[in-house]
Design a protein around this nucleic acid. Structure first.
Lengths: 194, 194
DNA sequence: ATACGATACGGACCATCAGTCCGGTTAGCA
DNA sequence: TGCTAACCGGACTGATGGTCCGTATCGTAT
């Protein structure tokens, strides 16, 4: 089996597309305002190229999301406390949820694009990102309770940091990021206490 | 100001459309599988009629949703315990959330259609239905804490019964409705204690 | 340096869908 | 029975995700 190497022009275009898409989603009011034509145009690339590289819209958005979350994943997987594996479970869960909230608050438009429904195909719950972090959190909680309840609790914690909820809290209800994180911290602490 | 009365044929068509849409969304795999043309055809009505009556897709779905939720709203607004106003706050909140979960579990496809993103315009958090029930719950919680925290907690409780989460739990994780409601009950009890 | 096959490019093209428009029809009333 | 406002329906439009294929480019073998 040969190692397929991506041609230089292909690599250049992939990068241009990701950057353009990132920029567009970040500045758009709503993800649906950004069409694939817009992305292609902004990247200075043909539509065919865009679709050959990324398959479809959902896939493009997923890759953007993955790129943004990569640093966080690394920190969680093999970083120093409080995110890294050496931290005590409950404390680590709290740190993880807080970190997720922070990333989403700071990348709200992009996160919104990913979590913005559109059929079962891109249900966040089915994405590897969600499943992985859910599994991790549920495993961290399992020491205190049974599997079913750990799974449930992990879902609830993640539901607290959904992009659209966070946006609503900041934009419509006028909560500051600080207030949100404070509430979140209280809530998690209370939820995880026995 | 005269009282505009809807003509008989118009009323008949409105009903036919609502019924057809209800049926289609209920049996479709995903809300996006149901086009407005499908609805019009199934209702035996022209597209023009459909749009004149309901304005746009989001509006149609909202009306379906409202119709499904009306009985619950009535029971909450002026019914007997445990949903009605005479119930003690915490107990009532628990009953309300459980009732919402039940309705959503029983109408999952339709509920999914409504909550299925699509720009800030139909963000559930902005719908009157959501705002009203959030306000009610937050007001019931205010006795135990401050405004900010009551608001937050109400949002979290409602996030636990979002249609897509419920669907994921039943369809992908294979939880039974009973298990979900049991977890929910435990969770609420724990959250509202102290 | 050159030639050549594999890979990639791009934009015209297609299908689908929400939403509009207007000529023809019908309900309700005098 | 006749009149008018309200209503009907389906052809039409504009936008969008996604496909196709003739042409251009890359990387390599010579």
């Amino acid at each position: 089996m040969t190692v397929r190497v991506e041609r230089a022009d292909a690599a250049r275009n992939r990068k241009a597309i990701l950057e353009a898409a990132d920029r567009l989603f970040a500045s758009a009011n709503s993800p649906s305002d950004v069409s694939m034509d817009d992305v292609a145009a902004a990247a200075g690339v043909g539509k065919g190229t865009l679709f050959r590289r990324f398959g479809d819209r959902a896939s493009l958005i997923r890759q953007l999301y993955a790129a943004r979350l990569a640093p966080l994943r690394d920190k969680i997987g093999s970083g120093p406390p409080p995110l890294g594996p050496s931290t005590a479970p409950r404390e680590r869960v709290a740190a993880i949820i807080d970190a997720i909230a922070l990333v989403k608050l700071q990348n709200s438009h992009l996160m919104l694009a990913l979590e913005d429904g559109g059929g079962p195909a891109n249900d966040i719950h089915r994405s590897p990102d969600y499943r992985d972090v859910h599994r991790l959190i549920a495993d961290l909680l399992i020491a205190d309770t049974d599997r079913l309840r750990a799974d449930w609790t992990a879902h609830v914690l993640l539901a607290c940091v959904r992009a659209d909820l966070l946006r609503h809290l900041t934009e419509t209800e006028g909560m500051s990021q600080t207030q949100i994180r404070a509430n979140l911290r209280n809530f998690i602490e209370h939820t995880l206490s026995r």
